[in-house]
């Protein structure tokens, strides 16, 4: 188990309601509180529509909460934070830019120094096995490679907190496993705080220090699990009895909540 650092993010009593076009009010998220310690890898699992993505957007400052507040590094979050990196479900690469230019988009937006960022981009691309692809365009890459570029882009401006919204959701099972290993490698190399949203129980347990299990709409936190396995972890771990116990318990919890 990793040492929990000082508190990085504290979200208290988050609620998010939407008004539909028919005038009905939908509660996507209800009374959710979560805190992240510096350097911690925390996953959220839950059924579709449990407000996982909404929670991430609230933390990212893209969406405003209906109630509750988010404190990041001691400051109340009211707008998007430059100290956060976001990875979306799809890679969201810009097709008119090369891989390297895509990775450097945050540097351009944040008006940071380009030269050291380029060097860092090459290092990160190497870490995810994309050396030699710098000047390719996204359309020349496979889905898994594109998503890796998206992850590198989210890290390029050295954010303190990485928010990932089902980043491997669109990939095939084999690629997902490889991506999980790549993400672990990145995490061990950088020790960012990661807030990882997934509907894969296996992925959550494999990658995390802590797994938060959520219920279906309105999204609530059902239970939290602390995952004690030492790192680096490999996929043999997933067939051990201890790992299986965690996975089973989480699955039962979700099964009691709703069909996943």
């Amino acid at each position: 188990m990793s040492e929990a650092g000082p508190l990085l993010l504290d979200a208290r009593g988050l609620r998010k309601q939407y008004d539909t076009r028919e005038g009905a009010r939908i509660t996507a998220l209800e009374e959710v509180s979560v805190s992240l310690a510096d350097g911690e890898f925390v996953s959220v699992v839950g059924p579709s529509g449990c407000g996982k993505s909404t929670m991430m957007k609230l933390i990212a400052g893209i969406v405003k909460p209906s109630a509750g507040e988010i404190i990041y590094r001691g400051q109340v979050v009211t707008r998007a934070q430059r100290g956060m990196g976001v990875v979306f479900q799809s890679p969201v690469l810009l097709p008119w830019l090369t891989v390297l230019e895509n990775v450097l988009v945050p540097i351009r937006v944040l008006r940071m120094d380009r030269a050291p960022a380029s060097a860092r981009a090459r290092e990160l691309l190497e870490l995810v096995g994309l050396t030699g692809f710098e000047s390719k365009y996204p359309s020349e890459l496979s889905g898994g490679m594109q998503q890796r570029v998206g992850i590198v882009r989210s890290l390029i401006h050295d954010p303190g907190l990485l928010l990932m919204d089902e980043p491997f959701g669109a990939l095939d099972a084999l690629t997902r496993e490889r991506m999980s290993l790549a993400l672990q490698r990145i995490w061990l190399a950088n020790r960012k705080t990661v807030f990882f949203i997934t509907h894969s129980i296996l992925e959550a347990v494999f990658l995390s220090d802590r797994v938060i299990v959520m219920s279906a709409r309105p999204g609530r936190i059902l239970q939290e699990f602390t995952i004690p396995f030492p790192r680096p972890r490999d996929f043999d771990l997933t067939s051990t009895a201890e790992f299986g116990d965690f996975a089973r318990e989480i699955r039962h919890l979700l099964g009691a909540s709703v069909d996943v």
Partner: peptide, 24 residues
């Protein structure tokens, strides 16, 4: 929408959003 959210997450200015995302 994802493209706009990416730029929102970076707190990009209106001009940056226009030039870097909307126009292309």
């Amino acid at each position: 929408r994802d493209r706009m959210e990416l730029f929102a997450s970076l707190d990009a200015s209106r001009w940056q959003r226009f030039v870097m995302i909307k126009l292309p």
